[in-house]
Simulated scan of single mutants.
Amino acid sequence: MTSRVTFISPATNPSLRQTRFDDSRTPLDDAGRAQARAASGTLRPADRVVSSPSVRCQETAAALGLADAEPVAELAGLGVGRWEGRTLDEVGAAEPDAVAQWLADPSSAPHDGESVEALCLRIGRWLDSVREVDGRTVAVVEPDVVRAVVAQVLGAPVAAFWRADVAPLTATEISGRSGRWNLRMGNPLGSHTVGS
């Protein structure tokens, strides 16, 4: 039995363009919607389609032709508490020590939300549950979820979370059996059919 999961990062929206801590309710912008529609049809058929519960992930899934994507709470992006809706520049100017702590210590949550460490553990639990699912899963998820997947699959320290760049509308694919995952990342949608 082999489980295959293709993680798709969402198309652009104003929050991504402004480096804003998204509040999960911000929709795609016109450019992002058009880019996602242009990539429609480039994913191989899946046995299961899921998404982060955020508006931009659900809208990306719909624009990609994955209208049946089931929002999964465990795949939500990092909860940033009171920083939601603010830009990184705004928070950095108001709370420079808190931002420095947050970036340096994966167990910290100075925003009164979720730590990076907690996000990685949550995504690790989800990966454990999908490991036993035979077939192909497509998951349209926030970039921070993809970062957590990469750290978990590689067995990297949680601090490696910040070392993975995740571009909009790219695919990160994992496949595995017997408790071992293999990783292929950064495939842009639209250039070829995605999904091993």
Results as ranks from 00 to 15, higher is better:
66 L>T: 05
192 H>D: 12
97 D>H: 12
134 D>S: 14
31 A>S: 13
119 L>H: 01
7 F>R: 04
112 D>Q: 08
12 T>F: 00
103 L>Y: 01
64 L>F: 08
48 R>I: 09
84 E>R: 14
37 R>Q: 15
52 S>E: 04
127 L>D: 10
50 V>T: 11
187 N>K: 07
117 E>V: 11
159 A>N: 10
118 A>N: 04
131 R>Q: 13
46 A>T: 06
160 A>Q: 11
75 L>W: 04
189 L>H: 03
147 R>S: 12
161 F>N: 11
172 T>L: 13
103 L>Q: 10
151 A>K: 06
11 A>C: 11
127 L>G: 13
167 A>V: 03
90 E>Q: 15
142 E>A: 10
80 V>D: 04
89 D>C: 06
14 P>R: 02
11 A>M: 07
93 A>W: 10
164 A>W: 15
72 V>I: 14
77 G>E: 12
20 R>Q: 14
42 T>Y: 08
21 F>P: 03
69 A>L: 10
182 N>Y: 06
81 G>K: 05
188 P>R: 11
10 P>F: 01
125 R>H: 14
108 S>E: 02
167 A>Y: 00
25 R>P: 01
181 W>N: 10
148 A>F: 02
163 R>E: 15
35 Q>A: 15
123 I>H: 04
18 Q>M: 10
119 L>G: 01
77 G>T: 02
156 A>E: 14
95 E>P: 05
107 S>Y: 02
25 R>V: 12
195 G>H: 04
108 S>P: 04
109 A>M: 00
93 A>G: 15
160 A>W: 11
17 R>V: 03
133 V>S: 06
41 G>L: 07
38 A>T: 08
81 G>V: 09
138 V>A: 02
122 R>D: 07
76 A>T: 13
22 D>L: 00
53 P>T: 06
144 D>Y: 01
151 A>W: 05
27 P>E: 06
128 D>I: 01
64 L>N: 09
11 A>N: 05
13 N>G: 15
116 V>K: 02
86 R>M: 13
192 H>M: 12
100 A>W: 00
134 D>N: 09
164 A>H: 15
104 A>G: 08
112 D>M: 00
157 P>A: 09
188 P>S: 09
178 S>V: 05
102 W>S: 06
192 H>E: 12
20 R>H: 09
194 V>N: 08
66 L>I: 06
137 T>H: 00
159 A>S: 15
118 A>K: 08
135 G>N: 01
83 W>N: 13
2 T>A: 13
131 R>H: 13
136 R>F: 00
3 S>F: 01
32 G>C: 06
3 S>E: 01
87 T>P: 04
175 S>L: 06
22 D>K: 00
78 L>C: 11
44 R>C: 09
168 P>C: 06
65 G>Q: 10
75 L>N: 03
127 L>H: 11
96 P>A: 11
114 E>C: 05
57 C>G: 08
73 A>W: 04
57 C>Q: 08
